[in-house]
Design a binder for these strands. Structure first.
Length: 252
DNA sequence: TAGGCCATCTGGTCCT
DNA sequence: AGGACCAGATGGCCTA
């Protein structure tokens, strides 16, 4: 029912409401106690006068309940979509990990999309360079470090945006984690222009502050420290083929 | 205990 | 008219 109910979130802030238009199920919830109290009080103040106004009141109450129910359903659908988005985002998901807030999910998704788009563009360029030049055709490499992480054992170089995105995310999917022998700072900057990453992370200052607060609150997640190796998937290096292609492209 | 996050209620607005 | 969408208000839960 609640979007939290089926998740691994340790917290369930939503009261267990049965979404049902029948009055009984609604009134069983504590959220309606004030509402009911108000209506009871209103009834008292009116005394025993009953008539069309009373009927209108009941009609309005039914209408209000219906509207509330619809609104609740709408918000539940919205939360389901939000959960769906969280599922595909590169952050730690597990029983011991607090789930991303809504605002964090949206901001992270935006940056994730931008990063993937950039990776795609870069791959297109590289592939174009390879097929246009004399370089030997290498096996296709995953376009993104997250995908690269699914090919353990590959010799990898770090995606330049990984640290930046990681700093926003604060964590990554457990299912994607594996260790890299390289440091986070070792391979990052070489093959990419700085303007690249800065454009991705060019949040409005207020949003940056928001990200600091909301995305770095996860104490169970990986954190980036200068010069320290990071096991997260976003820091997973790109395959050799990609870095090789990248260096080839830059040397032209 | 304060602050963050969330679910829900509610009234307003817009659209069909 | 009815439904969808939105934003403000309110109160609960959780964490630092």
């Amino acid at each position: 029912m609640d979007s939290d109910a089926g998740s691994s979130c340790s917290r369930s802030s939503s009261p267990d409401i049965v979404v049902d238009d029948s009055a009984g199920s609604f009134f069983s919830n504590k959220m309606f106690h004030p509402y009911l109290q108000d209506h009871r009080d209103a009834g008292k103040s009116e005394g025993k006068v009953k008539g069309s106004s009373e009927l209108n009141k009941e009609e309005n109450q039914d209408l209000r309940l219906k509207v509330n129910s619809r609104e609740r359903k709408r918000m539940h659908d919205l939360n389901q979509a939000m959960d769906g988005l969280r599922e595909v985002m590169p952050y730690a998901q597990g029983p011991s990990v607090r789930k991303l807030s809504k605002i964090s999910t949206l901001l992270l998704a935006r940056n994730y999309i931008l990063m993937l788009s950039s990776s795609l563009e870069e791959m297109k360029k590289l592939v174009g360079d390879v097929y246009g030049g004399s370089a030997a055709v290498q096996p296709r490499a995953p376009a993104h470090p997250v995908m690269a992480s699914t090919t353990p054992g590959a010799h990898l170089s770090l995606h330049p945006l990984a640290p930046s995105l990681h700093s926003l995310v604060g964590s990554t999917p457990l299912s994607l984690q594996h260790h890299s022998s390289q440091t986070a700072t070792a391979a990052a900057p070489a093959s990419h222009s700085p303007s690249h990453s800065s454009s991705f992370l060019s949040f409005h200052p207020s949003v940056q502050g928001l990200l600091k607060d909301s995305l770095h609150m996860n104490h169970h997640s990986f954190r980036h420290f200068p010069g320290m190796p990071c096991p997260c998937s976003l820091c997973q290096p790109l395959p050799t083929t990609t870095s090789t292609l990248s260096s080839l492209a830059l040397n032209k």
